[in-house]
Simulated assay, not measured.
Amino acid sequence: MEDVPERMRKEYLLPDMDSTFRVFAAHWRTVDQDWKYPLHKHPLFEVNLVLSGTQEMTVNRTSYIQKPGDIILLGPGDEHESRAIGRENMTYYCLHFDVDERALRELLCRNKTYFHASNSELAAAIRPPLDKLIRLTQDEGAERVESRMITLSALFELFAGISGTLSKWDHGNAVSRMSQAASQIASRLERAVDEAEEQSMSEHDVETIESIAAEIGYSMSSVNRMFTAVYGVSPRQYMSTLMLKKSKLLLMDTELTIEVISAKLGYKNIAHFSRQFKRWTGESPSSFRSRFYK
């Protein structure tokens, strides 16, 4: 009898995906003509859309005038301040987010075009999902499961619009030596987390980064500089993000005790893992698990 695989003539598969993102302080706000926000920076990406009135946004010492429909796209560490200008109130929508998808992070961090006019390619690509998010932000029932799923759908549309547009602009550009090195470092960090041994990761992560630096022939300072320039976070921060994601996935497997999970992740004991998890999330592993399984 002929084997089933030999009878197969054509097959299409979606690629495996394992990615997380976080959204912070998304808000719709109307302010008066004297409003201003002081100079600051943060480790997040930001989309800022003016809906009415006029805003002056200064990014890394360059000022941009935002009219309705104009968008500012910022990366981690970009210094910025803003103020309403003119004689009328100003309404804007602001969304902060973080993603661990390496290709998207690299595109976002490489982008240095902060201002996108209302008739720009990027604005056309991301305005529809932004409008959905604005409506959901104003929805009193936003906590409903259905609304949360619609929100997730709109966020994925937003990320797709950003990545699709930035990829077009980036097409044909030679991948720099720095980007290649950073990608190597990220791949090795991901492998190190997947193969975590039974030792304290808070002690082990620095050793891991040092060994990766030696392996690819760069100093620790060069590795930190290149990685942060390409991905917007340090290698150690990136490794912590990977560890947190793996921790959450394991905690959602109720057949595993927290003690077993602690050992799988390479911690010396459960107390050490619990302290680290609480530093990351503000809650204990058992508290996180109980929110899903009561």
Rank of each mutant, 00 (worst) to 15 (best):
E2Q: 14
E2F: 13
W28P: 00
V31K: 05
V31D: 01
Y37I: 09
K41P: 02
K41C: 07
E46P: 02
E46T: 12
N48D: 07
L49K: 09
S52A: 15
N60Q: 08
N60D: 08
N60L: 05
R61S: 11
Y64S: 03
I65L: 14
P68S: 08
G75W: 04
G77Y: 05
E81L: 15
S82T: 14
Y93G: 09
H96F: 09
F97W: 09
V99M: 07
R102Q: 07
R102T: 15
R102E: 10
L104E: 01
L107W: 09
L108F: 09
C109V: 15
K112H: 13
K112S: 14
L122T: 11
D131E: 14
D131F: 10
R135K: 11
T137V: 04
Q138V: 10
R144A: 00
V145K: 04
E146G: 05
R148F: 01
F159W: 01
F159S: 02
T165F: 02
L166H: 06
S167W: 03
S167K: 06
K168N: 07
D170W: 07
N173M: 13
V175M: 10
R177D: 05
R177S: 12
S179F: 04
A186I: 05
L189A: 13
E190W: 03
R191N: 06
D194R: 15
A196W: 01
S200G: 12
H204A: 15
E210K: 15
S211W: 01
S211Y: 00
E215S: 14
M226Q: 07
F227D: 03
T228S: 13
Y231W: 04
G232W: 05
P235I: 15
Y238Q: 10
K245V: 09
S247H: 02
L249R: 08
L250D: 01
L251W: 00
V260S: 09
V260K: 12
I261G: 06
S262K: 05
S262Q: 02
A263W: 00
F277E: 00
F277K: 03
R279M: 05
R291E: 06
K294M: 06
